[in-house]
Simulated assay, not measured.
Amino acid sequence: MVSASSASIETLKPLTSLRFFAAFMIVVLHSLMFWSWFSGAPQTLTHGVSFFFVLSGFILTHVYTSKQITSYFGFIRDRLSRLWPVHLFALCFLVLFVRYDYVTFNGEGFFDRSVQLALNLTLMQSIFPFEKILFSWNSVSWSISTELFFYLAFPFLVIGIKKNWSVKLLVSAMASVFYVFVMMKFAETSMGKDAGVVITYAAYANPIFRGFEFCLGMSLWVVWDKYIRHYNASFAFWSLVESAALIFTVWWIFYGAQLLIGSTSSFVLVNVITNNMGSCWVFAILIAVVASGRGVVGLILSNRVLVYLGEISFSIYMLHLVLMKIFAFSFVPELPVTPLMYFSALLFLASCSYFMIEKPAQRLLKSRSKSRSEGKTSTEAQLVG
């Protein structure tokens, strides 16, 4: 389906580690709902999901421009083998250990718990513009629902990506803007108001809106491969560039993004875009600079401990909010939960999930096509769940 060589795939260890930091951004943000450990942390930490989506587009393109997708359904099966088992485990963990009245929203008709559960199990919730659907049950699973739609489109998007990346990036940007515009108008109609459509939630998780971030990651890989990947420079040069990119990213998340969002508050359409995707270009710069790990930042990110945290980051992400609810609602309310207590439990649980659920399920469920067994590298373990 996709013409590609069978060349070996370069393992990009720094990007594995970056997955952990993207997940940690979301963990910190959600902890503010329960504890004051990170009081003062900016709401722009929610842009960690943008980090995931850009990384996902980059790494998938990195892998599948080097080998063939011989079967569309085999590709989708392989991607689902990464997402669904841990998703199911997190749901079961939620039901078993979180107090029933804190498990999920409850409503009537379309918002009934059973309907919410069906949409969650099939990872279809991200296409519905309702808060009580998007954030039902294990609420963070909206992002893997969105990711699933990216997977469905990827085998077609990657065709000719080295030649037509700019067209696909432009079309995805236009689609994002058009989607927000249409939903803004629909939310103002009587039908939209009766349905309870709110533009914030209508755009936040929708794959059409978020597709720009994924296409940005794909396009970024093309630019990186052509201009950055083989650029010869000293360790000192790359250390300087990587450090500058990292410092700018941190500054942007804590200050720059908030300034951008505030400056667009009078323009609803633009504000919706900047509020949700305003940091994706900054993450793209960081990814492109540190991907090959040729400077001090890349060297640190290639550390075995950070790489391991990156490998278990999907389980960290999927389980962190469930564990927060367990500590906050299912234990003795007076129990003083400390950061050491929570993060130790989270790392232990995520490690168990990685070794006992995630990896065995991938081996069991992955397709058996010849191309999937040939040229397999640890790079594929970096794919964003």
Rank of each mutant, 00 (worst) to 15 (best):
V2Y: 08
S8C: 06
I9A: 01
S17P: 14
M33T: 12
A41Q: 05
V49I: 12
F51T: 00
Y72Q: 07
F75G: 09
L80Q: 07
C92V: 15
V95F: 15
V98H: 11
F111N: 11
D112E: 13
S114C: 10
A118K: 14
L119R: 03
L121H: 04
L121I: 12
I127G: 02
P129R: 02
F150L: 08
F150C: 12
L152M: 13
F154P: 13
P155C: 10
F156P: 04
L157P: 14
L170Y: 15
S172Y: 11
M174E: 08
V177Y: 10
F178D: 08
T189K: 13
K193Q: 15
D194A: 15
N206D: 06
E213H: 01
V223R: 07
N232T: 11
F235I: 05
F237R: 03
S239P: 06
S243C: 03
I247R: 08
T264Y: 12
V272T: 02
G278K: 02
V290G: 01
V297T: 00
L301V: 03
G310L: 02
E311H: 06
I316G: 00
Y317H: 04
V322G: 05
L323M: 06
I326Y: 07
F329P: 10
E334P: 02
L335E: 06
L335D: 07
S344I: 03
L349W: 05
S353L: 06
F355K: 09
P360K: 11
Q362N: 11
L365W: 13
S373K: 14
T379G: 09
T379D: 05
A381M: 15
V384T: 15
